[in-house]
Design a protein around this nucleic acid. Structure first.
Length: 762
RNA sequence: GCGGACGUGGCGAAACCGGUAGACGCAGCAGACUUAAAAUCUGUUUUUCGUAAGAAAGUGCGGGUUCGAGUCCCGCCGUCCGCACCA
């Protein structure tokens, strides 16, 4: 061995093969292939400007699967693109005066340049960017089709409004009742917004979860809870002395009707608003409720408060029972009917409320085996199932039976009906933003909301916009929004809101099937060939929003004739985060990993000053805590194979991965070791086409292990036990290295062993 | 509060159906090569006792089922995650 040749030259080798792959267009896949198909997809990135380790892990997982499936004879669709609309581009425009489009496309170029040396086997010919009019024009058409199909509508709704920024904020952008950037108290405002009717598919989305056998249970459960199906009764309460109005209540506990002690309605319930017209005190109570945000912190500390309206409701089941009617801050207008009856003995919230306002507490369910006279309600409501008491003819029934009978009776008497309720609400897609897809609607004073004619699509974003003032640049653009009505030709105005950016990510997987198709966006033949996605890989943080929206969108597109599938992703892998220790200097500043070093004594010091550094717990890599490692630097030093091997070696994919410098060194050593084994074999290799010699002893044992390893690694890969697959490959490498060179047949087995190793490792 | 996941050496982990606990790797220790270092190779490494052969204990804690439990059941403790005034 000479000093220069005994070490693997990462740069030369990797760039050589990468350019060979590029020249031969190795990973391009045609839509009309003859082999069985397999579609591998990673959640596409937002072009923030730099690749981070989370991306590297995500794409390493996908790439291994794509290569494995190709090796098993599948035509593999494995594309990459950019989720390119979004707020950071506008922030860059505000802060640095760069146009969002320029900023975004420059970031895409930078990230693509970082991705290429990773040697991922993408079909780059299918690359898309969602901010491209050739992408979003189809999305505008889809919206118009949804509108025709009754799946999109416009309505007034309460939103989080930031009075300083003049825009709607998402719930996630409201922190402790204040706007995350402006710090101004968020107001609740009634605004006209476009909605997609996701609730139409609530039942179907719920049932569909059962078919997603290759999804993590955790994600299915989260979606199930999010959809939040409940069964109960809608029931009318007449008001004493009023014939023109009554209150409709939704309850899942009709069995507790005999224990009712009040009725409460939401602050923005129509009846409350009507009463407030003549009652200034109530009006100010309602205003107070509306001022309260909907953030967790506010809700947790908010006291249960009610305002007695003076009205009396009549219990429709219990004759003669009269109940005071309150407007209460804990009743939500968006859920059920915006009105509840309170049964303090069996609902904690109702009990708190009843104690505060001195209302009666009558237990109507006894725990099994407890006599009616022994049931005492203190500070805790009894919410478990039991046997009915104090409920007239229903005494002695089980909770389940009483529910059923109560519902039957209400239906017979025509005062209520069985009802299924969902927590899921329709998806508000309007955003008062510039850098998004325009909602293709024109408002005419005479004709109302008129769809933009399909021949006028796409509605392009104007480029000459300013970001010097708060608010939506589209709304204040001098000419863009002024158009004539497509119906009557009179002066009209464009919708200046854009779509929520989850809109783009709800169908991009279908666009990859025919990324250049101009006429329809999704070519039915291509979609039939590739969809659904066989394996989707991404972070758990999208367990609900993106994955639920995409499942809904797929159903909506099916109804409008675009697609012929129900579920977009049959397999889902949610990968864990990439974590790293955190470091702080003694004066409390976060330090980058390269700013500290470990001493021989095992202490950690700040390299520049020699002062001790404080080591914090390992957390998800984030810029704010500076516990980040730049993938570029790693790939430059160790190469893509090393980075990817390390990503797969230690932790199972679903679990968090602790990034360590020692770990990457270990992976690098193995890559080098393999290279040496191939370049300088221990025994002369048998010629390629030679006949299998008769084997015995250690050579035979090794041959057995080689084939066992092939089987085991395949199984491990099928089950995403990538860390185990790596361990087995390393075991085989050890075994190959241990084979005595003088063994009979060594040359032959060695060749087979090495070929296998190279194939499996590749 | 509700729902869920997890808990195994100094560290990341493995153990598929209940059958040799700790594969594979990291770190450590000892050695070989070297003037030396790096790299590489060899050995060793759960803990306690023992010079050793060996013995005992051991998968968060306490019980149980079983010939046999990291794995199954019951009850705790801890960590993490999701949802949360949902009637």
């Amino acid at each position: 061995m000479s000093g220069t040749d005994d070490r693997y030259n990462v740069k030369e080798t990797e760039s050589k093969w990468q350019s060979v792959w590029a020249e031969r267009n190795c990973f391009h896949v045609q839509n009309d292939g003859q082999n069985p198909k397999f579609y591998v997809l990673e959640m596409f990135p937002y072009p923030s400007g730099r690749i981070h380790m989370g991306h590297v892990r995500n794409y390493a997982l996908g790439d291994v699967l794509a290569r494995y499936k190709r090796a098993r004879g599948f035509d593999v669709l494995y594309p990459m693109g950019w989720d390119a609309f979004g707020l950071p581009a506008e922030n860059a425009a505000i802060e640095r005066g760069v146009h969002p489009a320029k900023w975004t496309y420059e970031n895409i170029a930078a990230m693509r340049a970082q991705l290429k040396p990773m040697g991922l086997s993408y079909d780059w010919e299918r690359e898309i960017a969602t901010c491209d009019p050739d992408y979003y024009r189809h999305e505008q058409k889809m919206f118009l089709d949804f509108l025709k199909a009754g799946l999109a509508y416009r309505k007034e709704s309460w939103v989080n409004w930031d009075p300083v920024e003049n825009t709607v904020l998402a719930n996630e952008q409201v922190i402790d009742g204040r706007g995350w950037r402006s710090g101004a108290p968020v107001e609740r405002r009634l605004l006209s917004q476009w909605f997609l009717k996701i609730t139409e598919f609530a039942e179907d989305l719920l049932n569909g979860l059962k078919t997603l056998e290759r999804w993590p249970d955790r994600v299915r459960l989260m979606q199930e809870n999010w959809i939040g199906r409940s069964e109960g009764l809608r029931l009318f309460f007449d008001l004493d002395g009023m014939t023109d109005s009554r209150i409709e209540v939704y309850t899942t506990r009709p069995d507790t009707l005999y224990g009712a002690s009040f009725v409460a309605i939401a602050a923005n319930h129509p009846l409350a608003i009507k009463l407030a017209e003549t009652n200034p005190e109530l009006a100010s109570f309602i205003a107070e409720c509306n001022r309260l945000g909907t953030s967790e912190a506010v809700l947790e500390t908010a006291e249960k408060k009610g305002f007695a309206t003076g009205l009396t409701a009549l219990n429709p089941i219990v004759e003669g029972q009269k109940l005071p009617v309150y407007v209460a801050n804990f009743v939500l207008m968006d859920y059920g009917t915006g009105a509840v009856f309170g049964c303090p003995a069996h609902d904690q919230r109702d009990l708190d409320f009843a104690r505060k306002y001195g209302l009666s507490v009558t237990p109507v369910v006894a725990p099994p085996g407890v006599a009616a006279s022994d049931v005492i309600i203190g500070d805790e409501a009894f919410t478990e199932p039991g046997v009915l008491i104090n409920s007239g003819p229903f005494d002695g029934l089980s909770v389940a039976d009483a529910k059923a009978q109560m519902i039957d009776i209400a239906e017979e008497r025509g005062i209520g009906q069985r009802s299924v309720n969902y927590r899921l609400r329709d998806w508000g897609v309007s955003r008062q933003r510039y850098w998004g897809c325009s909602i293709p609607i024109i408002y005419c004073p005479d004709c109302g909301a008129v769809p933009v004619p399909e021949t006028d699509l796409p509605v392009r974003l104007p480029e000459d916009v300013t970001f010097d003032k708060p608010g939506n640049p589209l709304a204040r653009h001098p000419t863009w929004k002024h158009v004539s009505c497509p119906h009557c030709g009179k002066p009209a105005e464009r919708e200046t809101d854009t779509f929520d950016t989850f809109f783009e990510s709800s169908w991009y997987f279908a666009r990859y099937c025919s990324p250049k198709d101009q006429s329809q966006g999704i070519d039915p033949k291509a979609a039939a060939r590739w969809l659904p996605v066989d394996q989707y890989i991404g972070g758990i943080e999208h367990a609900i929003l993106h994955l639920l929206y995409a499942r809904f969108f797929t159903r909506a597109l099916k109804r409008c004739g675009y697609l012929d599938i129900d579920e977009p992703f049959t397999g889902l892998l949610t990968q864990g985060m990439v974590c790293h220790e955190t470091y702080k200097s003694e004066d409390g500043h976060w330090l980058f990993p390269e700013e500290v070093e470990k001493t021989d004594g095992g202490r950690v010091i700040v390299s520049a000053s020699g002062q001790p550094a404080l080591v914090g717990r390992s957390e998800k890599m984030s810029k704010s805590k500076r516990n980040v490692v730049d993938p570029d630097a790693i790939i430059r030093t160790y190469g893509a194979d090393t980075a990817r091997l390390f990503m797969l070696s230690d932790s199972p994919p679903e679990r968090d991965l602790e990034w360590t410098a020692a770990g990457i060194e270990g992976a690098f050593r193995f890559v080098n070791r393999l290279w040496r084994m191939v370049m300088f074999p221990a025994a002369p290799l048998a010629p390629k086409e030679s006949v299998i010699p008769a084997l015995s002893g250690e050579a035979l044992a090794l041959r057995r292990q080689i084939h066992k390893t092939i089987v085991a690694v395949s199984e491990d890969l099928e089950r995403f036990h990538y860390n185990r697959a790596v361990a087995r490959i390393r075991e085989l490498a050890n075994a190959v290295a241990d084979l005595p060179p003088e063994t009979e047949g060594a040359g032959w087995v060695l060749r087979e062993g090495l070929e296998t190793l190279v194939q499996l490792a590749g």
